[in-house]
Design a protein around this nucleic acid. Structure first.
Lengths: 165, 165
DNA sequence: AGGATTTATCTTGACGTCGAGATACTTTAG
DNA sequence: CTAAAGTATCTCGACGTCAAGATAAATCCT
């Protein structure tokens, strides 16, 4: 059965028969699937009144474990955004009562961002919902194939993980 | 060998042992790989003085085949952006001399965006370079595995392709 | 200890995108 | 033939991000 990428590549092969476009069989599908996943994620979070970027921050704090505190610096490493963006995000999450800023007791330059009870409840509910939706998306392929694809994707991602010391 | 996603999931399993996070073994890696690919793409295009969004528009026109014309409406369906964004993109590409706007002979509401010779040269060179880089990224897995992963990704993307009429 | 460097966070301005609305033209229905 | 509905594109204001720079505090080195 055909998909959009098959049509895309058919057009390229017609227009540029000199090029070997097979790499796009994999990588265009990765990009497109990721775009669709973003939309699906946004929808799943809408139910819980969360934006994707809000979930990203709250989830990083939730994963850190009790007492759910991280510095803005750690948060921006986890979420791959810049410092200006993180300041802005923490501002807005604070305004919504989902996190609070505490002075870092050990470093007066520093700040700790901590999940509030409301923040923890929100991220826990959203996470459960997200996984339910993701499970449905993956139902298109068998559990064995899911394990295979996970393994191959790990190989493809590894070089990038290594880059950042 | 471990990757960032393994560490991520380990944290979630510690904090939320009640949740089955295996869907993220696949889908988190898809999202992360897509993010890395975006960066790699930007770098590949930098050599040719193109931004990613510029390539997206030029490539859609190039794929359409001679005379390399598409309406803004078709372009925004191809590139998945909104109409305001496409107007802005075409404005800037016109200013750079990579495309030009022509009146649609068959519909006086309409406009046709056409690749200039410079635009065609730019997109052809960038495309060749992009594929070279992508081939290197995929060298981490065998050709047989590339075909396998392409097939599985097609299965995962299909439901989304069907959505839009 | 004292000065230089590094680290942590915040501030600011530019940029690209979105989405709602405006405008102009075309198609359909009566 | 005209009015209403539909379609194609552009305009504009709000938003989130980035990147460079500013500020403040900690650490390193002699």
């Amino acid at each position: 059965m055909e998909d959009e990428v098959d049509r895309l590549l058919e057009a390229w092969r017609r227009e540029r028969p000199d090029l070997d476009v097979t790499p796009m069989e994999v990588l265009s599908r990765v990009s497109r699937l990721a775009r669709h996943l973003d939309r699906a994620r946004s929808q799943a979070f809408e139910t819980h009144g969360l934006e994707s970027w809000e979930f990203d921050v709250l989830a990083a704090l939730r994963r850190a474990g009790s007492p759910y505190q991280l510095s803005p610096g750690k948060l921006l490493k986890e979420t791959l955004v810049t410092s200006g963006t993180m300041t802005n995000r923490v501002d807005r999450l604070t305004a919504r009562g989902l996190v609070e800023r505490l002075p870092d007791p050990g470093d007066r330059r520093g700040v700790l961002v901590q999940l509030t009870d409301a923040g923890r409840d929100a991220v826990d509910a959203a996470m459960a919902d997200l996984l339910t939706h993701e499970r449905q998306l993956l139902a298109a392929i068998s559990g064995r194939d899911q394990a295979r694809i996970a393994h191959l994707l790990r190989e493809l991602v590894r070089p990038f993980d290594l880059e950042k010391h």
